[in-house]
Nucleic acid binder design. Structure first.
Length: 415
RNA sequence: GCGGGUGUAGCUCAGUUGGUUAGAGCGCUGGUUUGUGGUACCGGAGGCCGGGGGUUCAAGUCCCCUCACUCGCCCCA
């Protein structure tokens, strides 16, 4: 026991039902995103740390205390990616040409937090990003895709809700930040420590503080939607109209600002309605200034990320997430029966899920087939070997038939 | 970073106010007349009771430390 090597804290092996659910989620995700013309991409899991300190923000929790970073045999600081949007933005910054670049990806992300239910140090996300398009239609479409995927995965309406907000244009944000800072400055004494720090660097993030005294102060704070420019208001209204038009329920939440610094305009989050758990399952928004922060180009973008484990947790354990193929067990009483076996070659050549099992005890062979949920057993025991025959039994309906070895065509008998 | 809970067989757990060789179910394995599987019955293997220290005639049980897992807070998908 003490010698066992366990997985690193906060990491998990994915196997069995969990793996089936994971594959199920991937399947729906890529199918639906492909339908909207997204192209899949895989970017490296390691990146220059600078990518995230510039994009996500130096003083976010993610960058300041949760990143796995190391110096790579010299002076390059490398890190395990804590999220994927920055990597895709990096890719787009050097590969975008014109029109829309629609990207979908998935993979492991790493954040060094205290693990708990629905929060792991290595977790998995699915992401879609649309880069290069300013139209509010895209904001709607990206939310529509999210909603479609959750539905297709079998989540029902009362399991989750959609919250949306507009953070306005970069100019609106600067403007509103000033007004908010002025207001909050009057209450410096009562603000929490973290909020005080944010007051200097990024006052917007104070809005989603969960500190009680902060909340009291924020109750009467100026609201961002009162300070949006006319253009920003129209932009946001268009999105809401499209959502309503397509029966996507949402709730406006003026406190929703997201934990990353790069968002502008639309911010949204799908949350589970279940109490007592990490409730954000999918979240994202528009990031028109992000690419300019990490490159010399200025390209708008919008996207979201969803936590695979968090979605997986919401899926029922009692469903079958795999289309199991018929499985066949080729069982023989002695290894020598497998030598120069035409049956074996047929099995290898056919598109059949199979296993070979050798045991002198016939009963063991059947028990094995049963326990491992094989649908058919192909048996060559001593008698069959002598008479050059072979037994095929359907384990589901218990019917069985004896064939001559040189006459059996497996693909014809099993389907 | 801060709090709560739990560590006993491969897995899920019992172990009474400290008291001899530490238990159950499931799983694994052998058998119930020699070639036919989900049931039934009988047998078997398998535990430094997470680790270290302490109290005691005696510790799985009480105390301290430590490690691991887990659930919350913060934050986030």
């Amino acid at each position: 026991m003490s010698n066992n090597i366990l997985p690193v804290k906060g990491t998990h092996d994915i196997f069995g039902l969990e793996m089936d659910k994971y594959n199920f989620i991937m399947d729906k995700f890529y199918k639906i995103s492909a339908k909207f013309n997204f192209q899949s991409i895989q970017t490296p899991i390691i990146e220059h740390q600078e990518l995230f300190s510039r994009s996500v923000g130096e003083d976010t929790d993610i960058v300041s205390k949760e990143m796995y970073s190391f110096v790579d045999k010299g002076d390059t600081t490398i890190c395990l990616r804590p999220e994927a949007t920055s990597s895709l933005a990096r890719f787009a910054a050097s590969n975008y040409q014109s029109g829309q670049m629609k990207l979908s990806t998935h993979g492991p992300m790493f954040r060094r937090e205290r693990p708990q239910k629905g929060r792991y140090r290595q977790f998995h996300q699915i992401n879609i990003e649309n880069i290069g398009e300013k139209s509010s239609y895209i904001d709607f479409e990206i939310i529509l895709i999210a909603s479609t995927i959750l539905k297709e995965l079998g989540l029902v309406a009362d399991q989750y809700k959609l919250l949306i907000n507009s953070l306005g244009s970069p100019e609106d944000q600067i403007n509103y930040s000033k007004i908010l800072s002025e207001y909050l400055n009057q209450y410096r004494r009562n603000l929490s420590e973290t909020s005080l720090a944010r007051l200097e660097k990024n006052p917007l993030r104070i809005l989603d503080s969960k500190d009680k005294s902060d909340k009291d102060i924020l109750f009467n704070a100026p609201k961002i939607n009162e300070y949006l420019s006319k253009e920003s208001q129209n932009f946001f209204n268009d999105i809401k109209l499209m959502l309503t038009d397509n029966n996507i329920l949402f709730k406006e939440d003026e406190k929703l600002v997201r934990g990353l610094d790069y968002y502008t305009h639309t911010a949204f989050e799908f949350q589970t309605n279940e109490e007592k758990r990490q409730n954000a399952i999918l979240a994202g928004g528009r990031y028109d200034k992000l690419i300019n922060i990490i490159s010399s180009r200025d390209i708008p973008g919008i996207g979201w990320a969803a936590g695979v484990e968090r979605i997986s947790n919401l899926l029922s354990d009692n469903k079958n997430y795999t289309k199991i193929p018929k499985k066949i067990l080729y069982a023989v009483q002695d290894e020598s029966y497998l030598i120069n076996s035409s049956i074996l070659k047929q099995i290898y050549g056919a598109d059949i899920s199979h296993e070979i099992k050798v045991n002198k005890n016939i009963k063991k062979l059947f028990t094995y087939a049963d326990k491992n949920k094989f649908n058919f057993i192909l048996l060559i025991g001593e008698e069959e070997f002598k008479s050059k025959s072979i037994l095929l039994k359907n384990l589901d309906d218990k019917s069985q038939k004896l064939y001559r070895q040189n006459e059996l065509l497996i693909v014809n008998e099993i389907r």
